[in-house]
Write a protein that binds this DNA or RNA. Structure first.
Length: 701
DNA sequence: GAGCACTGC
């Protein structure tokens, strides 16, 4: 805590906060803003009229920073200083400095929109621009008008992009606090390499042979490249002449590595040994590796993006932004002066890279966020005009509205329904919360809870699938994991959980079946949380127990699949007549295929089910549906009927609402009339054609 | 017959 740069600015900061409702604080890494700001403000007496909330984009940060602050203030964690993250609330009535994830603050604002328990709200690490932070920024701008006399908002950011945030908040003051990084010398490649894998390899070996001690951190884009580079480095290091240079340890570092492998980067290397850490952008912000002196930056990152016009996600390798490049370079200067090797020319850095990473809100499906905002009942609220720091496209917002309409969360005028209100209380994607509600009607809530929880953890479920592991598995005796009885992935996920449940949540069983222990524990926590919320909504009268020792019948699966059809009304697909390709039944039909990992059964003629719902569309080598479940035609018909009624102008409130625009909201992108952009009869004829195909099938069978 | 970066309620 000694000599943190921010402490020299204490008076200046407090004075500015005193005079202004909103202050932007630019504090570089090591400035101490995360631990010190809350303490200063507390000491100045602001906590007499309410607590201080400090948001963090990550759970671990909320926990570790609060622990540190409690220690510095000499209090027990959970008393004056505490934290709240999902599944864990370590606060009490005494708590006056509360660290929380931004998602938790959004949940709190659902039950208490004015957030009256807080006198100060600090949005920390706002430059990371998580979806939740962006929504909070918009909410704060509204809240500060309402509570101008008794609320202070501080927004901290590590980059110099404070101007924009300041403008967003009516030109509020910006304070700069220097960081405590050592200088990092930057080297550029003369030209872009043909293969950044090859180029990283050469640069790393070069450093190893020529430069003094210090670990090397290499930024790659994904697991595949990391594995390849690790292998190459190992081979070369072994072939280097003994004694010609120091020893070396090569460590991969990425998210799907089991935790025990991840923590290896935290144990210091033996003397006279250099570590090569080959990492994804997990090492950019989430994990800080000590001892790094050299950084090699490929200039690329793998990024997931959503295309609202197709409803499809893709995972693309894209150029990083300048903010990211600087962040990566900074990783070399934490303990002493360092060096950063950028594998691209300086003209690329200065002229080609975007200033900042495209914020998540412009890369995600917004159904959940739009539903959340609708449920807040903000006055004069037209979602297309909500004041976002960087507005998502109107196409993206309209896509969200259509999805919500199809699952009954909003009515044809775009107003939230009572179903929608209940859905918003559940920490799930709208499709899954809608499924839970429908399942409750059909008496299969327990099963639906399990499916929703399993899908929430989906990516962390399967252990890192290396190629060798995959091969080994094929030669092993067939896995004892259930197969979904042919109905698809949702049913399989349900069955897997129920088997695990019957082993009494045996961790060994998970390992034996190649399921990540961490993931399965998470599923259990989610399931419990969802059960509690559903119980609260229904006042405790629901059956949420997992079924013990009882064979699920065909009828149970049928009910569940029917509930899924209602929940996934905007994620439906119909098989082509003569082959196993599918056409989505959304607004713009897409030709897609069932992902090869899916467990659907084919009929006697080798055909897949006529109708399916899917959890997501992902475009990789081709467009695929992932996590697919067979459904029945009669359940689909009412949805097609509803599609006909869809009118985006009414949904977005364009005809009924005329609200004055406030400062900043003028920046919203112009609303594009989707219906007008297309021949008017196109949609009707398409739906008509789909109906005819239905009828044709009906008569055949 | 494919392959998934990272977070979070």
């Amino acid at each position: 805590m000694a000599n943190l740069p921010i402490l020299q600015f204490e008076e200046k900061i407090l004075e500015t906060v005193e005079r202004n409702p909103v202050v932007v604080i630019i504090g570089e890494t090591g400035s101490g803003k995360s631990t010190q700001l809350s303490q200063m403000i507390h000491k100045r007496g602001y906590t007499k009229s309410g607590a201080i909330a400090v948001t963090q984009p990550r759970r671990v940060a909320a926990v570790s920073v609060s622990r540190r602050v409690a220690q510095e203030l000499g209090v027990r964690l959970g008393e004056e200083v505490g934290y709240a993250i999902r599944f864990e609330d370590r606060t009490s009535e005494k708590t006056c400095i509360k660290y929380l994830t931004d998602g938790v603050l959004l949940r709190e604002s659902l039950s208490n929109p004015e957030l009256n328990q807080y006198s100060v709200i600090i949005l920390d690490e706002a430059h990371e621009r998580s979806l939740n932070t962006d929504i909070l920024l918009g909410l704060m701008r509204r809240l500060i008008k309402k509570r101008s006399s008794n609320l202070k908002v501080l927004i901290t950011s590590a980059t110099l992009d404070g101007e924009k945030v300041s403008r967003f908040f009516g030109n509020c003051p910006i304070l700069n606090v220097p960081g405590k990084l050592f200088p990092v010398e930057i080297f550029y490649s003369a030209e872009r390499p043909k293969s950044y894998l090859e180029s990283s390899f050469k640069t790393a070996i070069d450093i190893h042979v020529k430069e003094p001690e210090g670990d090397i951190l290499i930024f790659m884009t994904g697991q595949d490249d990391i594995d390849k580079l690790v292998k190459k480095l190992e081979e070369r290091v072994q072939s280097l002449e003994e004694g010609s240079c120091m020893d070396a340890i090569i460590l991969p570092l990425h998210g799907s590595l089991p935790p025990e492998m991840q923590v290896r980067v935290f144990s210091p290397p033996p003397p006279n040994c250099r570590r090569f850490i080959v990492a994804t952008n997990i090492a950019e912000t989430s994990l800080t590796v000590d001892g790094v002196v050299y950084v090699i930056d490929s200039g690329y990152v793998k990024q997931r993006q959503y295309n609202p016009s197709t409803g499809m996600y893709s995972l693309d390798i894209v150029q990083i932004s300048r903010v990211q490049a600087d962040q990566r370079a900074g990783r070399a200067g934490r303990t002493r002066p360092g060096k950063c090797y950028r594998l691209y020319p300086s003209t690329v850095y200065h002229e080609e890279l975007l200033d900042a990473t495209v914020p998540e809100i412009q890369r995600s499906s917004l159904a959940g966020s739009v539903l959340y905002l609708k449920s807040l009942d903000l006055p004069d609220m037209n979602i297309l005009k909500f004041g976002f720091l960087d507005p998502p496209s109107s196409e993206s917002l309209e896509d969200a509205l259509k999805q919500l309409f199809l699952i009954d969360a909003i009515d044809e005028n775009g107003s939230i329904t009572s179903i929608g209100r209940t859905m918003a209380e559940l920490p799930l994607e709208p499709s899954l919360s809608r499924t839970l509600m429908e399942a409750n009607e059909y008496g299969c809530l327990s099963q639906a809870l399990t499916v929703a929880a399993m899908l929430s953890a989906e990516t962390t479920l399967l252990a890192g699938r290396s190629k060798s592991m995959e091969k080994k598995r094929k030669h092993d005796p067939p896995s004892e994991l259930p197969d979904g009885s042919g109905w698809g992935d949702h049913i399989q996920l349900l069955q897997i959980y129920e088997v695990w449940d019957q082993t009494n949540y045996d961790m060994e069983w998970c390992k034996d079946n190649n399921l990540q222990v961490r993931g399965m524990k998470f599923v259990r926590d989610v399931r419990k949380q969802l059960s509690q919320i559903m119980q609260k909504i229904a006042k405790g009268s629901l059956d949420v127990q997992t079924k013990e020792r009882r064979k699920e019948s065909r009828e149970d699966y049928r009910k569940l699949r029917k509930a899924l059809t209602v929940g996934y009304a905007s994620q439906l697909a119909e098989r082509m007549i003569r082959h196993n390709g599918y056409r989505t039944l959304g607004f713009k039909p897409q030709l897609v295929q069932v992902h090869p990992s899916c467990v659907l059964r084919i009929d006697d003629e080798g055909m897949l089910p006529n109708y399916v719902v899917y959890h997501e569309l992902i475009s990789t080598s081709r467009p695929f549906m992932r996590n697919v479940c067979a459904v029945e035609m009669p359940w689909v018909l009412p949805i097609l009927k509803k599609l006909e009624k869809l009118n985006i102008n009414r949904l977005s409130g364009g005809m009924v609402q005329s609200e004055e625009q406030t400062e900043g909201e003028k920046s919203s992108l112009p609303k594009k009339d989707v219906d007008a952009a297309r021949p008017p009869d196109d949609r009707d004829s398409r739906i008509q054609a789909a109906r005819e195909r239905f009828l044709a099938r009906k008569t055949k069978s």
